[in-house]
């Protein structure tokens, strides 16, 4: 019987660098309220957003992904030739074909990369990070560039006052490579396909979510996922320095933080609130928040962060990481 040879992977993996990109155009609540029936106060109270960024018409998802990915490589002190695999988490490419990852890899300069898109909607980055970590540990990849990028505004009905205020555009990225000690804990992931109708495409072209149902799901089911991720990594809530949930709604973020604190997380745990100035950017929100928080000095190298993404599918995933 023929025995197949297996690749030898790294003992552990870690995030080597992060980067992000946001389009230039800032859209304030006041600007939105000139077009749709809403107010700055209403938006801040319901979702916690003060402003968000919209890509220009000719600014594509892949363009944003290229910039965020290049920045992550620079942050890690690596060249494009140092990575061999690119995973582009997204759910808003303009067409099903072609995928985005191959062209992003090529434009960044990663030659003949293993490249694929991954759609787990707002949980996409955590799914992609878990996949990247396991590719490095299995030996299937040396280093992986993980990018979450979205142009949600292509898929939002700008007259829909419930959804137009929430979604925005942008990209975030992390480079994953080998490590002596674990810097990325086991991914805890799952789905609830029976709840698929909570977030869907209205008229096959506009993102629509059942606000109350999604809020109930997110505020009751997601903190337990974060707690499972901590357990899988062998740490306790009191060990967590930083909580970065998907930036769906500031009230959901605060609810998750409250539940973690009720389970022993520290009062001084830093909680990502990037949604205030970035809106909901789906799979881009977690790496973008991490990058912004590092730049602002709210995250230090070595901090223990728990990431948790959740969204359409419904899909969810979380893991513990050591911040670069």
């Amino acid at each position: 019987m023929t025995t197949l040879h297996l690749a030898q992977g790294a003992k552990a993996s870690r995030i080597l660098g992060v980067g992000s990109f946001q389009p230039e155009r800032v859209v304030t609540n006041d600007e939105l309220s000139q077009r749709i029936d809403t107010t700055d106060q209403w938006i801040r109270e319901r979702v916690g957003i003060a402003e968000r960024r919209y890509a220009a018409k000719d600014e594509r998802l892949v363009d944003m992904a290229v910039i965020a990915g290049s920045k992550a490589l620079a942050d890690a002190g690596l060249s494009p030739s140092d990575v061999d695999t690119v995973i582009l988490a997204n759910c808003t490419m303009p067409t099903p074909i072609p995928n985005g990852a191959a062209q992003v890899a090529d434009r960044i300069g990663v030659k003949a990369a293993g490249a694929f898109d991954l759609n787990a909607a707002c949980a996409g980055f955590c799914y992609a990070l878990g996949t990247a970590s396991d590719l490095v540990r299995s030996g299937s990849a040396g280093r992986v560039l993980v990018i979450g990028a979205e142009k949600l505004t292509d898929w939002v009905d700008q007259d829909d006052r419930a959804n137009a205020i929430i979604f925005a555009d942008g990209a975030g990225s992390a480079v994953v490579g080998p490590a002596e000690t674990p810097g990325i804990g086991p991914v805890v992931w799952g789905s609830a396909g029976d709840l698929v109708d909570m977030i869907y495409m209205r008229d096959d072209k506009w993102i629509y979510q059942e606000g109350q149902s999604v809020f109930r799901w997110a505020t009751t089911q997601i903190a337990p996922i974060a707690l499972r991720a901590l357990k899988a990594a062998g740490i306790t809530p009191s060990d967590v320095d930083v909580l970065i949930p998907h930036q769906a709604n500031l009230r959901i973020v605060e609810s998750i933080a409250k539940k973690l604190r009720a389970n022993g997380a520290r009062e001084d745990m830093v909680v990502a609130d990037d949604i205030v100035h970035s809106g909901n950017t789906s799979s881009a929100s977690i790496p973008m928040a991490m990058d912004h928080m590092r730049a602002a000095g709210r995250i230090k190298p070595g901090d223990v962060a728990v990431l948790v993404g959740f969204g359409a599918g419904l899909s969810y995933a979380g893991q513990v990481v050591i911040c670069p």
Partner: peptide, 10 residues
Amino acid sequence: DSLSMVEIAV
């Protein structure tokens, strides 16, 4: 508001 109603219901 509608979201607080959800929290109250839960």
